[in-house]
Amino acid sequence: MMHRKATRLLICDLDNTLYDWVGYFVVSFYDMIEKMVEISGCDKEALLDDFRSVHRKHHDSEHPFALLETETVRRLHPKATVQEIAKIYDPAFHAFNSSRKRNLTLYPGVMSALKVLHASGVTLVAHTESKLFSATGRMQRLQLTKYFSRLYCREASASLNPAAGSYSMPLDNFPRNRISELSHHQRKPNVQVVKEICEVEGVATSDAAYVGDSIARDIMMANDAGIFSIWAKYGSYSSKSDYQKLVRISHWSDEDVVRERFLAHKAKDARPNAVLCNSFDEILDHIEAHEALEPD
């Protein structure tokens, strides 16, 4: 007798898989920059250089309140407290938040597909290279937390700015016991990490699927782990202008650039088991295709 062996675990990348991270972040960040230049009269290019330095220091292009650590701010307000500076530039923070509210939206088919998968008993976990507060903040804002049983993300920065106060996003809807923080050395494409995710969830790799937008970071990793790989092809596109603006302030070091080139070369022959061309809800057909007849 034969029965269907369904996918029991879906490991889901977040940025550029469930929403357009590059598109929303670049627009929001540069709206903040324009407002800060308007307030302070500082040189925009020098300010962008400062942001890049702070981001590299923390290995994070989304380091919370990086603005308050820039040399430009320190030079303009040498005697002001962090709290005083935060108040001066509150309109710049507000510009970022307003832009994020307008531009951070789910890709087509995400919510409907997650509802179906969750209701069908598939365990959903998120795996991202974003740090703790960035990842949880977006999941809460997009009302995703109830569908994911666990979040695997990079560990929070050691130094969060004390001026954050009411700006910070509470973790009430995604408590710490549902979060596993990964070190900088556990970055994608770390095969052992996804194998351990399956082990923690009590699911064999053959019963799991992984969906992500990056061939080198997501698909190659899933393939090497023996996990059914699903490429969110729609998320691999971003405008050249947005990408250049991102690179301008990115935390990527020369070593990171070399690593990316190595991974791209290594992944040139990697092929996903399935492809989502236009929307996330195409995953429902592909996960069904992954089911196989197994003997009792």
Rank of each mutant, 00 (worst) to 15 (best):
V194H: 03
Y234F: 01
W252T: 04
D285K: 03
D296C: 09
H58D: 00
L246W: 14
S250H: 12
K131H: 13
N177I: 07
S180V: 15
T205F: 02
N16Q: 07
H290C: 05
S149Y: 06
W252K: 10
A46S: 15
I179S: 07
L132N: 12
V191F: 00
Q192H: 15
M220W: 13
K268I: 03
V73F: 15
V125A: 08
G23K: 07
H94G: 04
V116F: 07
L246M: 14
A164W: 08
L76W: 05
V203N: 05
V22Q: 06
D13W: 08
A6R: 08
F174R: 10
V257Y: 12
A270H: 02
C153A: 13
S157A: 07
G235E: 00
Q192D: 15
R150C: 06
L114R: 06
L293T: 05
Q83F: 11
K240L: 11
I230S: 03
A46T: 14
T105F: 06
K5V: 02
G23P: 04
G212V: 00
Y24G: 12
A163P: 01
G212C: 01
R138T: 04
V73A: 06
E201C: 12
S98G: 06
Y89I: 02
V37G: 08
V191N: 00
K268C: 06
R248I: 00
A267L: 08
A204V: 04
L68P: 03
G23C: 06
F93G: 02
K35H: 04
K5W: 01
P108Q: 04
L171S: 13
S40K: 11
R261P: 02
L263V: 03
I219M: 01
F65H: 04
D13M: 11
E294I: 09
V54S: 09
M32W: 04
H127D: 08
K188A: 09
S214V: 00
T205L: 09
A274Y: 00
A119I: 05
H265M: 13
A126W: 10
L263A: 12
L18F: 06
E291F: 03
A209K: 07
R176P: 02
I215L: 11
P175A: 13
L47I: 11
R176I: 15
K146Q: 12
V247S: 03
N177P: 04
P64G: 11
D90F: 09
E84M: 05
S40N: 14
Y19F: 10
F96C: 03
T145K: 10
I88W: 03
S206P: 01
N278S: 13
T128E: 02
F280K: 10
L76I: 14
I230V: 15
S53W: 11
T136I: 14
G212L: 05
P78E: 03
F25D: 09
H94M: 11
P175G: 15
Y89N: 02
R141K: 14
L144Q: 11
L182A: 10
S168A: 14
F65R: 06
K266G: 02
S239K: 03
A292P: 01
P175R: 12
P272H: 07
N177Y: 14
V82M: 11
K79D: 15
V211H: 01
L144Y: 11
M111P: 09
Y19S: 04
A163R: 10
S134F: 01
V122W: 09
